[in-house]
């Protein structure tokens, strides 16, 4: 290393931080809001508890799995069920014919409808092509 570089290096290594730097750092730290990380495990625990409760609630809402499958209804019971219900009779043709449908409105003639004015300017022929728009 040349002498001038060596000398420069020695001068460089003699540079010291100002004495008030530590006080400035302490003052800067004092200004910062106190931050603790205690909220992390507390929040994690709370979230885990909420998740467990939610899953448990979902499980309770669903129908519990039966320990034992319900007994299949017997054929006799099914037959009785059918007897209890009155059979529905399908309507007769005369009943259907007697129901009057409302009259259809009269079909409007083309001449009575005024073609709507096109909102889009510059489109030529739109009204002529599709007057019912």
């Amino acid at each position: 290393m040349t002498d001038d570089i060596e000398q420069l290096k020695q001068n460089y290594r003699r540079i010291e931080a100002p004495p008030e730097l530590r006080a400035r750092v302490r003052a800067g730290l004092a200004k910062q809001p106190a931050r603790t990380h205690r909220w992390v495990p507390i929040t994690a625990t709370a979230l885990a508890a909420v998740a467990v409760l939610f899953v448990a609630q979902l499980g309770m809402q669903q129908s519990p799995a039966p320990d034992k499958l319900p007994d299949k209804p017997s054929l006799t019971a099914l037959a009785r069920l059918m007897q209890d219900k009155p059979a529905l009779r399908s309507p007769s043709m005369s009943q259907l014919k007697s129901v009057k449908a409302p009259k259809m409105p009269r079909k409007p003639s083309l001449r009575s409808i005024e073609p709507p004015q096109s909102r889009i300017e510059g489109i030529i022929g739109l009204e002529e092509e599709n007057p019912h728009v």
Partner: peptide, 22 residues
Amino acid sequence: DRVFRLASVWLHDSQHAGDVSQ
């Protein structure tokens, strides 16, 4: 001292080395 020295050289203006070190 080391931080301050490095800041003095890296900065365009070494008079701010104290601020940077802080």
